Simulated scan of single mutants.
Amino acid sequence: MKLIAIGDNVVDYYKDRGEIFPGGNALNVAVMGKRYHAASSSYIGILGSDRAAEHVKQTLLRENIDISRIRQAVGPNGEAVVSLNPEGDRVFVGSNAGGVQAFMGLRLNQEDLDYISSHDLLHTSIYSNLEQYLPTLQERIPISFDFSTRWTEAYLQRVCPYIDYGFFSGSDLSEDECHQLISRAHHLGTKVVGITRGALGAIFSEEGKLYRQRIVETEVVDTLGAGDSFIAMFLIQYHQHRDVAEALELAAAAAAKTCGHYGAFGYGIPKVG
């Protein structure tokens, strides 16, 4: 399976540790998808020109991610400031508003579209600003989309008709609210809908058939990246084998493993300046 992720990248700055770690939903899924045995994994996004951007770039190369279509621009890379509570849950306490990628916006050209079409599955997110391209991309490749916690009815209407997989973070949603959200996304055209709920596990639906997945108990060091690892493992397993229950079990185990270390997938370095 050939995976491509397009959109957001940042460094996560852990103030209490004085370290930065590569991150961002799209970038995390690209890296974790490759670790979870995608035949190949590619990433398209905009990097800055600072030390943080160079660290992200070198990390992607070390992880054997194809970055041949990546962009770089003069300016700061995206940065999120992270704090941890006593339970190890990550809390975002600040950012530089996305750095150069947010300032410029990613623009896809015909060469990009042809390159994207050579893959089997595309993943992107609400933080990637690709909504205008979804109708065109849908004609070329199945699409996975992470809504995080930021959706409205209007946004669902804009995105759900063009995606195959929709992921939501819903630890604050009631059981009824989860079912309503799943039904709405299905009605708008999304075939597989998943809601991760923190310690409550996950609720997924494959065209109306519901599945529940408990968390895998583990010693928590840092929860940052756990949701992205869940998504990456689910996509790699389900898209190839079409077994929701098995994909969810493996995804829960992957998320638990991610909670055992700092950063989404490691590579922390001291922050300078």
Score class of each variant (00 low, 15 high):
residue 91 V to A: 08
residue 93 V to H: 06
residue 93 V to D: 03
residue 94 G to S: 08
residue 94 G to C: 06
residue 96 N to K: 03
residue 98 G to D: 02
residue 98 G to Y: 01
residue 98 G to F: 01
residue 100 V to Q: 04
residue 100 V to C: 11
residue 101 Q to A: 15
residue 101 Q to L: 13
residue 101 Q to N: 08
residue 102 A to T: 10
residue 103 F to E: 15
residue 103 F to R: 15
residue 104 M to D: 03
residue 105 G to D: 09
residue 105 G to P: 01
residue 106 L to P: 04
residue 106 L to G: 00
residue 108 L to M: 04
residue 108 L to G: 03
residue 109 N to A: 03
residue 111 E to H: 13
residue 111 E to P: 01
residue 112 D to N: 13
residue 114 D to Y: 02
residue 114 D to E: 15
residue 116 I to L: 05
residue 118 S to H: 14
residue 119 H to C: 05
residue 119 H to S: 05
residue 119 H to K: 03
residue 119 H to Y: 15
residue 119 H to P: 01
residue 121 L to D: 06
residue 121 L to F: 13
residue 121 L to A: 06
residue 121 L to Q: 09
residue 123 H to E: 12
residue 126 I to T: 12
residue 126 I to P: 03
residue 126 I to F: 13
residue 126 I to M: 11
residue 127 Y to H: 13
residue 127 Y to E: 03
residue 129 N to Y: 09
residue 130 L to V: 01
residue 130 L to M: 12
residue 130 L to Y: 02
residue 132 Q to I: 11
residue 136 T to D: 10
residue 138 Q to T: 07
residue 139 E to D: 12
residue 140 R to T: 07
residue 140 R to I: 04
residue 140 R to P: 00
residue 141 I to V: 10
residue 141 I to D: 02
residue 142 P to M: 06
residue 142 P to C: 01
residue 147 F to H: 01
residue 148 S to L: 12
residue 150 R to A: 07
residue 150 R to L: 11
residue 152 T to G: 12
residue 154 A to N: 14
residue 154 A to D: 15
residue 156 L to I: 13
residue 156 L to Y: 09
residue 156 L to F: 15
residue 157 Q to W: 06
residue 157 Q to G: 11
residue 158 R to T: 14
residue 158 R to E: 14
residue 160 C to F: 06
residue 161 P to F: 07
residue 161 P to V: 14
residue 162 Y to C: 09
residue 162 Y to L: 10
residue 165 Y to K: 07
residue 166 G to I: 00
residue 166 G to R: 02
residue 168 F to I: 06
residue 168 F to P: 01
residue 169 S to E: 10
residue 170 G to W: 03
residue 170 G to M: 08
residue 170 G to T: 07
residue 170 G to F: 00
residue 172 D to A: 13
residue 172 D to E: 08
residue 172 D to I: 04
residue 173 L to Y: 07
residue 175 E to F: 12
residue 175 E to I: 08
residue 175 E to K: 14
residue 177 E to C: 10
residue 177 E to R: 11
residue 178 C to S: 09
residue 179 H to K: 13
residue 179 H to S: 02
residue 179 H to D: 15
residue 180 Q to D: 14
residue 180 Q to K: 14
residue 181 L to Y: 07
residue 185 A to H: 03
residue 186 H to T: 06
residue 186 H to A: 05
residue 187 H to I: 07
residue 187 H to E: 15
residue 187 H to K: 15
residue 188 L to N: 01
residue 189 G to I: 04
residue 189 G to P: 02
residue 189 G to Y: 02
residue 190 T to I: 05
residue 191 K to V: 12
residue 193 V to C: 11
residue 194 G to V: 04
residue 194 G to E: 05
residue 195 I to W: 08
residue 195 I to C: 12
residue 197 R to P: 09
residue 197 R to G: 11
residue 198 G to Q: 07
residue 198 G to R: 03
residue 199 A to T: 13
residue 200 L to G: 07
residue 201 G to N: 05
residue 201 G to D: 04
residue 202 A to M: 05
residue 205 S to W: 03
residue 206 E to A: 14
residue 207 E to L: 07
residue 208 G to D: 06
residue 208 G to E: 04
residue 210 L to D: 07
residue 211 Y to S: 05
residue 211 Y to F: 15
residue 212 R to P: 00
residue 215 I to P: 00
residue 215 I to W: 00
residue 216 V to E: 14
residue 217 E to C: 10
residue 217 E to Y: 11
residue 217 E to G: 12
residue 218 T to A: 14
residue 218 T to L: 08
residue 218 T to F: 11
residue 220 V to H: 04
residue 220 V to W: 11
residue 221 V to H: 09
residue 221 V to Y: 09
residue 221 V to T: 11
residue 221 V to G: 11
residue 223 T to I: 10
